[in-house]
């Protein structure tokens, strides 16, 4: 949908932002080791950030000269759902460590499904639970990835269950 001959809302700001970031990173690169030798740890970062500065500036100059696009408003760039999901993920990431993986993920899936599907809470909860069980079995049980536990004492529960099972087997 991107039309190279028109400037979308926010495109100019974005290109300026990238130029700013590039300049900042270039400055950081000069601080690593200076220009002391061809093999210095800072030489390659200077090259890569230098390329970023030049290209981002070229893009910004070109973009700012383009006429505004009339077809697309902000609505097309950032529809409600995209903003909503981004904010939801941000909250998810912040809550993950203190609250723990299981409750946070369940709430995340529940809200996302409920809002996007416009369905009943019960149905959304069922879908969320099924998705979560799938992810949990694959990552935690099969691949032993220890996600942040938070408020649910997962490791104790699993250990207790394993003991129960092996106790039953003996």
């Amino acid at each position: 949908m991107h039309d190279p001959a028109r400037r979308l809302p926010g495109e100019g700001v974005f290109s300026l932002l990238l130029t700013g970031i590039s300049l900042f990173l270039f400055y950081q690169a000069t601080q690593i080791s200076g220009f002391e030798a061809l093999s210095a740890p800072g030489s390659f970062p200077l090259f890569s950030t230098g390329c970023m500065v030049i290209t981002s500036a070229l893009v910004a100059l070109r973009t700012l000269r383009l006429p505004h696009s009339e077809e697309h408003g902000w609505q097309a760039i950032l529809p409600g759902f995209v903003i909503f999901m981004t904010v939801l993920m941000l909250f998810y990431a912040l809550a993950l460590k203190p609250v723990g993986f299981l409750p946070t993920s369940f709430v995340f899936l529940l809200i996302a499904t409920k809002v996007m599907m416009r369905t009943s809470i019960a149905r959304a909860a069922l879908i969320a639970a099924l998705s979560l069980i799938l992810v949990y079995v694959v990552f935690r049980l099969v691949f032993s990835v220890l996600m942040p536990e938070g408020i649910v004492p997962e490791r104790e529960l699993i250990s207790a269950m394993r003991r129960l099972l092996s106790g039953g087997a003996e």
Binding site: L141, V142, L146, P153, R155, E156, I158, S159, R162, R163, L165, S166, G167, A169, E170
Partner: peptide, 20 residues
Amino acid sequence: AALLVAAAPVMAEYPEKDIQ
């Protein structure tokens, strides 16, 4: 299944859960 791997004997004190 992978989850039934360790046939852990029953213990009351440390360790109560998986060790990382």
